[in-house]
């Protein structure tokens, strides 16, 4: 099976999944109390029954469920997810405004967690029972048990009151009006606490995972062979062992992308980070269903894309599965 065919198949499946999410979204919108006609009528300051019927006919709300679903899908594929009642803007525009901040936060946290976790795990595996190893165990217990939003709040107390070293709210300093490089530095400075909060949970998990799989891999025949042929200890660790030991981390990171986004919702709320998480929080409070469902759709699409990327990364690291499905 050629790689292109395989990627094509995966893409087709991704489109099917995206369509399924859209169908779910539409069904939920349909079940939600009140319909767009009521909202439009509300904005006009009330309407008679005839006018409501007219609005429904205009937007196709009087058509059967499946016909409406078809129209919804067609519009969605053209990049139209409806209007936000609350912000009075197209949902897609609203989301695209907020998406970069979320992507910045999620990817910084992901890189911090995977790289940091791997390094810590390898160090811990060199001396099982040693200090680093115990720290990894402790960190993974604490990281799992502490609610992520609470960790964020505790960091705000620490860095907002005790050692005021990092900014505790927002994406950049509005008063500074920084531009160019200092703008980038300002954002990076604001990014430290939210991305640490979000990433440290996963860092704890990945370090434990890396340590466990390193310990397992170090006992395999090919590692013994590598040592027997006189390879440098560092080469054994990094080229022979780590490349195999890192596979579970890649799988896990891919599988957990959805929960990473979930965590981002909480972290953004805590740090007033202007991304999709705060958007969904605001629109949930305002009962702005099109926006809430729009964010659900975009996040699901991000997860689907992340799964595709994970698949490719996995293939790059492990040549054995390259030509298998």
């Amino acid at each position: 099976m050629s790689l292109i065919w395989l990627i094509g198949k995966r893409l087709l499946y991704a489109v099917a999944l995206i369509t399924a999410v859209l169908v779910l979204n539409f069904s939920l919108l349909h079940l939600a109390p009140g319909d767009p006609a009521d909202v439009i009528a509300g904005e006009m300051g009330g309407a008679t029954a005839e006018l409501l019927a007219e609005i429904r006919a205009l937007y196709g709300l009087d058509k059967p469920f499946l016909v409406q679903l078809g129209m919804y899908l067609q519009r969605a594929y053209q990049g139209d997810l409806g209007m936000s009642f609350y912000y009075n803007l197209p949902v897609v525009d609203l989301i695209l405004q907020r998406l970069p901040a979320t992507i910045l936060l999620v990817f910084t946290a992901l890189i911090f967690a995977t790289v940091g976790g791997t390094v810590l795990g390898v160090l811990a595996a060199r001396k099982p029972g040693g200090f680093t190893s115990s720290m990894v165990t402790l960190l993974s217990l604490v990281g799992y048990a502490a609610p992520i939003f609470w960790t964020g709040l505790m960091l705000i107390i620490l860095f907002g009151v005790v050692i005021p070293f990092f900014p505790i709210s927002g994406l950049y300093n509005v008063a500074k009006m920084a531009t160019g490089l200092s703008w980038v530095v300002d954002i990076a400075h604001h990014l430290v606490l939210p991305s640490f909060t979000l990433g440290v949970v996963y860092l704890a998990l990945y370090s434990r995972l890396t340590r466990a799989s390193m310990l397992e891999v170090m006992q395999t025949d090919y590692v013994r062979t590598a040592r027997a042929k006189g390879a440098h200890e560092r080469t054994v660790y990094l080229r022979h062992a780590l490349r195999n030991a890192i596979l579970p981390v890649v799988t896990m990171a891919g599988l957990q992308f959805g929960s990473l986004i979930s965590g981002a919702v909480l972290v953004e709320t805590v740090f007033n980070w202007p991304g999709l998480g705060t958007l969904v929080f605001e629109s949930v409070i305002a009962r702005d269903y099109p926006t809430v469902l729009g964010v659900l759709f975009f996040s699901a699409t991000l997860v689907i894309a992340a799964n595709l990327v994970t698949d490719l990364v996995y293939r790059m690291i492990d040549p054995r599965i390259r030509l298998r499905d």
């Binding site: 999944l17 999410v21 939920l28 929960s259 986004i261 979930s262 919702v265 009962r287 699901a300 997860v303």
Partner: peptide, 19 residues
Amino acid sequence: TEFFQVLPPLLFAMVLVTM
């Protein structure tokens, strides 16, 4: 199952509770 795994759990739960 794969379909449900694509939806970020907390977001999906937020949608359900809101609706």
